[in-house]
Simulated scan of single mutants.
Amino acid sequence: MKIISFRRETPFHEILRDLQGKIRAHKERKPWRCYEDMSCMCVSQQVYRLLHKHFERYQPTVEENLTVSVHAEEEIPWGVRYVGAQKRWKKGMGAGVKIGVIDTGISGEHYELKNRLKGGVDFVGGKRNGHGTHVAGIIVAEMNQRGIVGVSPESYIYDIRAFDEEGRSSLATILQAIHWSIDNQMDIINMSFGMPQYSEALARVIKKANDRGIVMVASAGNNGGEVEYPARYDQVIGVSAIDQNGKLASFSSRGRGANRKAPGVDILSTWPGNQFRKLNGTSMAAPHVTGLMALQMARRLPASKAEATV
């Protein structure tokens, strides 16, 4: 499309009458839009190529049909700013990293997540709740000039659904979910869940994933006391929650197994139905660390893997 502005001293109706005669001669339909009071018209590229010498007779100003964007700005949630993600984006945004999110399921229709979600598995069926969608947004909400942005907005997530609508699962299902992550070569697994007791079977599958080079990040727990499992295993990065002042949240588990602290109070992220919601919990803290690990890992990926994944 070309946008043509004619000299105002030339009667616009005369220009139109002349052009209509030329168009009839070429058996073309009228392919323009006129703004007579401004002596302007928009014409197709085809017609401009056909009649450009005729247009030049009038010495008009000819412009391209430029792309115009609204001055929208996506929000960078305080947690993303707090962990320093913006500074790290100068060296990459996590492209090529595969992140398995073992949770209640992810809303793949959300405009912040649909291009980042690349696969997954459902071990439980039935209705979902928004917990997994919220976790996913903290990690990878896309940089698209609206909504919010996640810590690692160019990484890919995999929806490994192991929890029902009530947020409950079983040890056997968790073992399946981690095995799926190993078999499908995840780079990182986010586990925003926990249980108070040690499990030998879970310890063994965690070790197997660690031996395969998978980074595992888990929420410490919301009991205000001891860190839960799987965060407490040595091979897992356990994450406690802090507030905007950097203080440990009163609900956050702490102590042995809490290797890292990250934002977990008033965290804004994605919610089903193309919505956003604020939640509290170490479940929100863990994905901040997962995103940071993805940014770090992406720098070490060979270019061939990043391109193949994309």
Rank of each mutant, 00 (worst) to 15 (best):
I3F: 13
I4E: 02
R7N: 14
R7I: 02
H13S: 13
H13G: 03
E14W: 08
L19A: 01
K22T: 03
V43S: 13
S44E: 08
L50P: 00
H52T: 08
H54L: 08
E56T: 04
Q59S: 15
P60C: 09
T67H: 12
T67Q: 12
S69R: 13
V70E: 14
E73L: 07
E73H: 13
G79D: 04
K90G: 03
G94F: 01
V101E: 07
I102S: 01
D103T: 12
G105Q: 04
E112A: 11
L117C: 10
L117M: 13
D122F: 09
G125N: 12
G130P: 13
T133F: 05
V135W: 01
V135G: 03
G137F: 03
G137C: 13
V140W: 02
E142L: 04
E142I: 09
N144S: 04
G147Q: 06
E154Q: 13
Y158W: 11
D159K: 00
G167A: 07
L175K: 11
Q176S: 15
I178K: 05
H179I: 11
S181F: 00
D187Q: 11
M191F: 04
G194W: 03
P196V: 06
S199H: 08
S199P: 12
S199C: 14
I206P: 01
K207R: 15
K207W: 02
A209W: 00
A209E: 04
I214T: 11
A218Y: 14
N223R: 05
G225A: 11
E226T: 15
E228C: 10
A231L: 01
D234H: 11
Q235V: 06
V236D: 09
I242A: 01
D243Q: 02
A249P: 02
S250R: 11
S252Q: 02
S253P: 03
G255L: 10
V265G: 00
V265K: 06
D266S: 13
D266W: 00
S269P: 00
W271E: 10
P272H: 06
G273V: 03
G273C: 09
K278N: 11
G281E: 07
T282A: 00
S283C: 07
G291L: 00
L292C: 13
R300Y: 15
P302W: 13
A306C: 04
E307H: 08
T309P: 00
V310S: 12
V310H: 13
